[in-house]
């Protein structure tokens, strides 16, 4: 396996064990996948959402899939809430996920049911430790 011992991740974000990142701004959470997830997937070729704006989503449930040449991976809602926005740009440009996973390639924005829901997620150090254990 590749060496993940020296991986570091942006400290202003929260993380899930499913290798997603989350950024809370007020009552809204923006979610994407981490650089570690991107590295595991390889060349991303398709991002598809199973939800639409306004839908209710539940923490831990899938909201879409991301596919690379080799494999398919589910996208999970880190928290419960309402879908506020989906990144439509990924439809035509799935390669953005490889280019800028922490920025332009955000996946979903969720209006939080519980404003503090993000607190339960991992911080950068805890996520780095999780990645190290996975590697």
């Amino acid at each position: 396996m590749s060496d993940n011992s020296d991986k570091s991740f942006p400290t202003d974000l929260k993380y899930t064990k499913d290798h997603e990142w989350a950024k809370v701004t007020g009552s809204e959470m923006t979610v994407g996948i981490t650089s570690f997830a991107v590295e595991q997937l390889g060349d991303v070729t398709l991002v598809s959402f199973d939800v639409k704006v306004g839908d209710t989503i539940t923490a831990g449930k899938g909201f879409g899939t991301i596919e690379s040449v080799k494999t398919l991976s589910d996208l999970y809602a880190p928290v419960s809430g309402k879908v506020a926005a989906l990144n439509g740009e990924l439809d035509a440009k799935p390669e953005l996920v490889n280019e800028d996973c922490f920025g332009k390639a955000w996946m979903i924005k969720i209006t939080l049911d519980d404003g503090k829901a993000g607190d339960a997620l991992l911080d950068a150090a805890a996520y780095a430790a999780h990645v190290k254990a996975a590697g």
């Binding site: 396996m1 590749s2 390889g42 060349d43 690379s68």
Partner: peptide, 22 residues
Amino acid sequence: LGGRMVPFAGYEMPVQYTGIVD
């Protein structure tokens, strides 16, 4: 060479180095 090694048919083989498309 940076190969990502995976189990394949009883061997540890590289599934990719720089990326499948590359």
